[in-house]
Simulated scan of single mutants.
Amino acid sequence: MKFDLEELVKVGSHWLELFDSNFAMNNLPLNKRPLQSAIWFVKDGIEKLPFNDSKENFLEKEWFTALVIVIREWYQERYGTAHFEVVRETFSGIVLMYRTPIKIEVPVAVTKVHVEGETCWITFPDSIHESENLKSFFPTCPNFDALPKGERIKIEKRVDLIVSRTRSINLALQAAADLPDEAEKMAAGVWWHIEKAVADILSLDTAVAAVGCWELHLAVEKSFKVFLRQNESESRGHNLIKLSTASGKFGLNVTKSVLAKLPEEHRAIKLRYGEADIEIFEAVENYEAALQLVYEITGKLKRTYSINNAAFLLKKPPWVGLGT
């Protein structure tokens, strides 16, 4: 079936405007809007297809692939091309190298082509995958050969630990079961506090890193509160010791020596407002402690299922990788 899709989209652009307003109200990321717009456009904007074609299974039809590309071009014209480029989804972390914080990026999933251009395996590991190595996690790879052997081994172990905890935390948060609405919202924000803290610490500005330590406090605090609400309990305030004690009644016992490494609530609040100082290496220690605590807490969340290390064989949608 052939018809002028560009003209169709131009004439029906009021539908795209309407869809985009809905997406904006619901905070749908820009890169997800073209496909959803194309689906809605076919379902709601097209009354009848030419040549007696049917809407049945339209996602698999060639003309729908072409429509997605044309609508994506409409969005690129509206918002700019860069927003629609394919970006590998990663989590952020920090390792120390020569006493300097260095960023690492932990891919959310690992992919492997099964049949070129048709199918691929996607795996959600909870540790370093067999296809990955130390250099995989550094956006700009340092010169590891220049490191003393002992120092390199130390960094390898640290990266291994951070990758494992980072992936395990996020898999646990995604699979947490029977959360009240408030707890779901808190769970969704836990990792973003850590992401913000990583960015703050990597600024190497002590005032900004201090705010990052408050973000780490919130990540631990919210993790405790998600756990408590899942167990039909509740505890308010910023005091991590009290939250830990309350959680202990339901079988959660975090490492107390690690909890003691984090600033107590009043100092954490002062760090938030720039009323207290912290050195960068101390902020990194706070990051490592918070990561361990969130790992311990989320590991105790109840789940109805687990996708740790699960692999899925996916069929490539025909519109992926086409167009500009």
Rank of each mutant, 00 (worst) to 15 (best):
E17G: 02
H83A: 12
S13C: 05
S13H: 08
E288I: 03
G321M: 02
S203H: 01
A289W: 00
L322C: 03
K185V: 07
H83W: 13
Y287M: 11
G323Q: 09
E60N: 10
R229C: 08
V42D: 12
L240P: 04
P107G: 01
T166K: 08
H83Q: 10
K222V: 04
I102G: 00
V42F: 05
Y98M: 05
F41L: 06
I71K: 06
L252F: 01
G212I: 10
S235R: 13
E132A: 07
F227P: 09
A209H: 11
S127K: 15
D277P: 02
G299N: 13
E265A: 12
F19P: 03
F138A: 14
K316Q: 13
S247V: 02
Y287A: 07
S54T: 15
I69G: 08
E17F: 10
Q36T: 06
N170W: 06
A183Y: 12
S306D: 09
A175H: 15
V113N: 13
G321L: 03
I104Q: 10
K256T: 08
V208D: 09
T255Q: 08
K196L: 04
I153S: 03
A219Q: 02
I201L: 08
S168W: 15
L96Y: 05
S164R: 15
F137I: 04
Q174P: 01
N309I: 11
V163P: 04
R236W: 15
G80V: 12
F58T: 07
T100C: 08
D205P: 12
A82H: 10
G150T: 07
V258P: 06
F144S: 09
K256V: 08
I128M: 15
T140C: 05
D4H: 09
T255A: 09
A199W: 01
K154R: 13
A260S: 07
N170L: 06
F281W: 11
G117L: 04
I153Q: 14
H114E: 12
P101G: 01
K10D: 09
D181C: 00
S164M: 14
L28K: 12
A66R: 14
S131F: 03
N239D: 08
F64T: 00
G237H: 06
F227W: 06
E195K: 14
W121T: 00
E130S: 14
T65C: 04
I280L: 13
S131C: 00
W191H: 11
N239A: 04
